[in-house]
Simulated assay, not measured.
Amino acid sequence: MNKGLAVVVGGSSGIGLATAARFAAEGCPVVVTGRNRDRLDQAVAQLRASAPGVSIGGIAVDARDPQLGEQLARHGELQHLVLAASGGSGAGPFSQVGADAVRDGFEAKTLAQWTALQSALPSLTDHASITFITAASARAALPGTAGLAAVNGALEAAVGPLAVELAPRRVNAVSPGVIDTPWWHGRMPAEARDAYFAQTARALPLGRVGQPEEVAHVVVALAMAEFVTGVVLPADGGAHLATGR
């Protein structure tokens, strides 16, 4: 298992933070990035408390900022890069979602992860792992998710070409389903969110929505899998299965 430096772009909350904690638990030095300084400081403090003796650092920067590359270079060679930057919009009925909303989603996630990878390239080792965090909306074909499908589908479509172009570095993606993260808390009232989670759980083979730590386990396992590249791995509780439930 390669325990070189792991960088999680968008690692101050949710799946990104859980992934950083999982890398730290494996003994990897970790650097997380985030746009919000206060939230980033809280995340770094939490990671340090959970993994004493492991080097933990934070960079307050937008994933789309060219200065990210300069900041990362100060930390030395990167062995694992996880691109978890997210946000923006794009959800809702197609007839009601305007181009500006979809553009915002692309800016906040697709272009943020794309730009962050370009910034990090000079610091990556020749055999580094690169893992995008996408979403099951890329393939789920659910009403009201066309904008999200476009945003995440673009990233997933790039995995194969990048795996070939950047080889022997490994390029993969983890595609989470409905995961109970802070992303949902800013978009739905608690009662509506709980009802949606319950509805989703009934349709899933595993009978529940996921937790960030469960996705993080998949991300780190894939990053450490040294003979795997060019794959999009679902972590969705079986949402990709045609179960008829």
Rank of each mutant, 00 (worst) to 15 (best):
G144V: 04
G144N: 12
G144K: 08
G144E: 10
G144S: 13
T145L: 12
T145W: 08
T145P: 00
T145A: 11
A146W: 03
G147A: 11
G147F: 13
G147Y: 15
G147E: 07
L148F: 09
L148E: 14
L148M: 15
A149F: 13
A149C: 12
A149G: 15
A149Y: 14
A150Y: 08
A150F: 10
A150G: 13
V151N: 10
V151F: 13
V151A: 05
V151K: 09
V151W: 15
V151E: 04
V151H: 09
N152S: 04
N152K: 06
N152F: 00
G153C: 13
G153P: 14
A154W: 00
L155I: 15
L155S: 13
L155V: 15
L155N: 03
E156H: 06
E156R: 04
E156D: 15
E156W: 09
V159A: 00
V159P: 01
V159S: 03
G160Y: 04
G160K: 09
G160W: 02
G160H: 07
P161V: 10
P161S: 09
P161R: 06
P161G: 05
P161M: 10
L162C: 02
L162W: 09
L162Q: 00
L162R: 01
L162Y: 12
L162I: 05
A163W: 06
A163L: 11
V164G: 02
V164E: 12
V164F: 06
E165V: 01
E165M: 01
E165Q: 13
L166N: 03
L166I: 03
L166H: 07
L166G: 09
L166E: 06
A167E: 04
A167K: 08
A167Q: 02
A167R: 06
A167F: 03
P168Y: 05
P168H: 05
P168A: 11
P168C: 10
R169V: 11
R169W: 07
R170N: 04
R170E: 09
R170K: 08
V171L: 08
V171Y: 07
V171E: 07
V171Q: 08
N172Y: 01
N172V: 00
N172T: 01
N172D: 07
A173I: 05
A173M: 02
V174T: 12
V174E: 02
V174M: 03
V174S: 05
V174N: 06
S175V: 14
S175F: 08
S175P: 04
P176R: 11
P176L: 07
P176Y: 14
P176T: 13
P176I: 14
G177M: 08
G177A: 12
G177T: 07
G177Q: 06
V178G: 02
V178P: 02
V178M: 14
I179M: 00
I179Q: 00
D180E: 15
D180M: 08
D180S: 14
D180I: 02
D180C: 02
D180F: 04
D180H: 13
